[in-house]
Simulated assay, not measured.
Amino acid sequence: MADANGFVYESIRGPKWKVEFDRRSGGGFERVEAVWTGCGWRVTGREVVTTMRRI
């Protein structure tokens, strides 16, 4: 079973953005942010996240 691990959003003007949370083998997650270029996703940033919770 696959878990939802992120989301895609669009503003009124501008490209689509994607934020994903990938599990790390040592615990926690890696947050990966990307922008749609029209041909594919280009990663614009990433960081380690130690804790996540639903709000």
Rank of each mutant, 00 (worst) to 15 (best):
W41G: 01
G38S: 02
V48M: 09
R53M: 12
R31W: 02
A34L: 03
D22L: 11
A4V: 13
A4N: 13
E30N: 12
R53L: 14
R13I: 14
I55N: 15
V43Y: 03
N5G: 11
G28C: 14
G6I: 04
R42Q: 12
G45A: 13
G14F: 11
I12A: 10
F21W: 07
W17G: 00
I55D: 14
E30F: 04
E20G: 04
M52P: 10
G26N: 11
M52E: 15
R13K: 15
V48N: 08
A4T: 14
E10D: 12
E47G: 07
G40R: 03
E47N: 09
V19D: 01
W41S: 03
E47Q: 05
E33K: 05
G28W: 01
I55L: 15
V35M: 04
S25N: 10
T37Q: 00
E30C: 08
M52N: 11
A2Y: 12
A2I: 13
D22N: 06
V19K: 00
K16I: 06
W36M: 05
R31M: 07
E47V: 04
C39E: 10
F21L: 13
T50W: 14
R31A: 07
K16G: 06
D3E: 13
C39F: 12
A2D: 12
F7W: 11
R13L: 14
R13P: 04
T44A: 08
V32T: 11
R23E: 13
V48F: 01
V35D: 03
R24Q: 07
V32F: 01
R24H: 06
G45N: 02
F29H: 05
F29V: 03
D3S: 13
I55G: 13
S25V: 13
P15N: 04
A34Y: 01
G14C: 04
A34V: 02
K16Q: 09
G45C: 08
V43I: 05
A4F: 09
P15D: 09
D22V: 14
R23A: 10
A2V: 15
K18C: 09
F29A: 00
G27F: 06
S11V: 05
R23T: 06
R24Y: 07
P15A: 09
R23P: 10
R54I: 11
V35W: 00
R54N: 15
W17Q: 08
E47L: 00
W17A: 02
R31C: 07
A4E: 14
W36S: 02
V8N: 07
G45L: 01
E33F: 04
